[in-house]
Amino acid sequence: MTTYSPQTEAELAECIHAADAPLRIQGGGTRPVGQVVAHDLVEMSQMAGITLYDPGALTLVAQAGTPLQQIQDTLLAERQRLAFEPQDLRGLLGTSGQSTIGGVVASNSSGPRRIQCGACRDFALGVRFVDGAGTVLKNGGRVMKNVTGYDLVKLLSGSWGTLGVLSEVSLKTQPTPETSACILINGLSDAEAVAAMSQALSSPFEITGAAHAPVGVDGLPVTMLRIEGFDGSVSYRTEKLRDMFGTFDVSVERDPERLQAGWRWVRDVEMMHGQSGDVWRISCKPSDGPDLVSRLNAKSVLYDWGGGLIWALMPEGRDLRAVLGAFGGHATLMRSGATDPTIATFQPEPAALATLSTSLRAKFDPKGILNSGIMA
């Protein structure tokens, strides 16, 4: 396998234009999801650097190979952040290296705050990329605006490098809140926890994180509700939520370091680090979650997004979709200890949607060389 490390967009375009065999597209190599069929590797870490940052306009532009940590450090210095809370999946997937902003956007990586502010794709203002024919394309810009035709910014977000290779991304940033707090409700069943999270999210108290672990750090069930904002507002909303759930065993965490560690534990699914088995990511209606989990006999489970996202640690080589049957959502095999080619990484699409997806890939990657096989 030959490794190409382009340093400019022109070099990237030439590399893809000249390719006549499948290419594996890689940023920092921290999210190796799916089984890519590749002859050569295109490694993007040399195309790095923040090309524009305007804190006043809440706008940042960076080359795709820029380390995520560099971007977060730059924003932190101006008391800003990436609101969508991108995940660090190295511990879960057993990888190392530096996650890149291109990989974050390509995988639409979005953490617990998604329920309140949206996903990564909702904060992507613009993209530059090279399609499978070696043509440089751009869409969007540095401000939010209405679009006609394909919204390529959202189309590229979550496409896992199958429609084009990102060379530059423009992102909307967010001020870091003054303070935060977490309501901890102890001892709830899964169904009670989902109901409580739904009640909190339906309230006017602006929950920015809602998660439930049937087995928390101390071995007991814990439900977590995060509040962020100005100190006075956070204190007021905290008391209102304590009153709302006054019949349960409720406590409040305000220590910044413990709060950061607790939500990192949720965001990065730390309970499953170093644990053997396959890791599945299930997206579903929150109200359906407890019933779905009851069918799994999973080794470990974590609910995020108010119950709309479920992480499940399963025995190796077991097709979770076959266990669940048809349901209103989709399941993705994020980590596999057994290489069973009959278990698709991504949820098989309905016929009409599969036809549309195939047509889009043929349009943007006519040679079929970009991360070939990852969606199979």
Rank of each mutant, 00 (worst) to 15 (best):
G149P: 10
Y150G: 01
L152K: 05
V153F: 05
V153H: 06
K154D: 02
L155H: 04
L155T: 00
L155A: 01
L156Q: 02
S157A: 14
S157P: 11
G158E: 08
L163G: 01
G164W: 02
G164S: 02
V165P: 00
V165E: 06
L166M: 15
S167V: 01
S167M: 04
E168F: 08
V169G: 05
S170A: 13
S170T: 14
K172T: 01
T173D: 05
T173W: 04
Q174H: 11
P175I: 02
T176M: 10
P177T: 00
E178V: 05
E178C: 02
T179W: 08
A181I: 11
I183A: 11
I183M: 15
L188M: 13
S189F: 00
M197E: 12
S198N: 15
L201E: 12
L201F: 14
S203L: 06
S203W: 05
F205H: 14
E206H: 11
I207G: 10
I207A: 03
G209S: 13
G209H: 09
A210N: 00
A211I: 00
H212Q: 03
A213K: 06
P214H: 10
G216A: 08
V217S: 11
G219N: 06
L220V: 05
P221G: 00
P221E: 08
T223C: 08
T223P: 07
M224A: 13
M224Q: 14
L225C: 01
L225W: 01
R226Y: 07
I227D: 00
I227F: 06
G229I: 04
F230G: 08
F230Y: 07
D231Y: 14
S235P: 02
S235D: 09
Y236K: 13
Y236V: 06
R237G: 08
T238M: 07
E239C: 15
K240G: 09
K240Q: 15
R242Y: 07
D243F: 00
M244N: 08
F245Y: 03
F245W: 00
F245L: 12
F245N: 08
G246Q: 10
G246L: 04
T247N: 12
D249Y: 00
D249R: 07
V250P: 09
S251V: 03
R254P: 02
D255W: 06
P256I: 06
E257A: 14
E257V: 14
R258A: 13
Q260H: 10
Q260G: 07
R264H: 12
W265A: 12
W265H: 14
V266C: 06
V266I: 11
V266F: 14
V266K: 09
V266S: 10
D268Q: 00
M271Q: 15
M271T: 11
M272P: 12
M272F: 07
Q275V: 07
S276L: 15
G277M: 13
D278H: 13
V279Y: 15
V279M: 15
W280D: 14
R281N: 14
